[in-house]
Design a protein around this nucleic acid. Sequence first.
DNA 1: AGGCCATACTTACCGCGGGTAAGTTCTGCG
DNA 2: CGCAGAACTTACCCGCGGTAAGTATGGCCT
Lengths: 183, 183
Amino acid sequence: MVLDAAERVIARDGNGASLESIAVEAGVTKPVVYARVGSRAELSNALAARLAERLIAAAGAEVGSTSRFDRITLAAFFRSSLETIGAHRELFLYVTRGASDDTPERTLYLAGRSAGPLADLLTRWRTRRGDDVAVAVPWAYAIIGMLNLVSLWWIDEHDRPADVLADQLAELVWSGLAAGSHR
Amino acid sequence: MVLDAAERVIARDGNGASLESIAVEAGVTKPVVYARVGSRAELSNALAARLAERLIAAAGAEVGSTSRFDRITLAAFFRSSLETIGAHRELFLYVTRGASDDTPERTLYLAGRSAGPLADLLTRWRTRRGDDVAVAVPWAYAIIGMLNLVSLWWIDEHDRPADVLADQLAELVWSGLAAGSHR
DNA sequence: AGGCCATACTTACCGCGGGTAAGTTCTGCG
DNA sequence: CGCAGAACTTACCCGCGGTAAGTATGGCCT
């Protein structure tokens, strides 16, 4: 699979990953990569989709298992996301701050892939509680964006443990999430 | 000033802004740009610094005027940031999702420029209230990151008014910020 | 079995953009 | 008047994404 090769060379070379190096890592040549996966932008999109899938899967394993949604679950969501991102540092960097001109779309696409399910979850949860639901989408993007930048910062020097950081993030937003119409 | 020319051409051409087009807009040639401002990465950095300065200035005008710090102030901070970003759409896109390989550093640099003062503010505020202060830095990054992605999403299709969105963001984090040690 | 077509790959190339080396004009000063 | 040096321009290199044209491989029909 070309995408696996791409991930390997990105993990190795960081953002300097060229189509050509990916091609040789995959054991083929450039036009083949182009034929299989399309342009560089589509490659980045595909990688972004995969990473998003992994994030969602990891989060789902935490959140989906319990039917409840509480502060602990939220912190677990953050922790699993942080750890997944930390396990794919270079890929995360490549995908979020990758090259190319298409980047606004891709960043939004990647974010949307995570924010969508989160927004659904929030919508269901707040509907059940009889709370206002219009905030679900912006809040989902807010939480994902928070996670994005904090991950970047966390990756790039500070080595506090993931679970501590996750708990701090949960502390920041939990009260807001939980505060209902009964303000 | 070369940077002004750069902003003009970015506002016009979006991310397709090449050094050459910036040079002709500035009325000079490429090596001159290179001599004055350094590499493309440094150009992006300088632009990022300027945008951060504007954001901080706008935020300071809102937050710094009142000595208090409450939900209203927080919402005003979000609103002014959103509006500043909205007024510099293309520049914001260029700077956050710009080209090049240096991007992790630059993104962090830009974010840090905003997150730093915010972290200071949070630290002072929570010190005065006798609350834990270790969360100030991660929270500052969290809030800036939130703002980043929400801005991207907001710019790119949804036209709800800035003040509504700002209020929703404030609602999300205010309780968390305000919740003290007396959990 | 032998020739033919399609598919799939490779080699070779183009264009563009960042970066730079070498040449050229302009300015001030002896 | 001539010279030194700074500042700018022209002309170029290189690397990368993208593609066109050529080449091998494998099946299929006669």
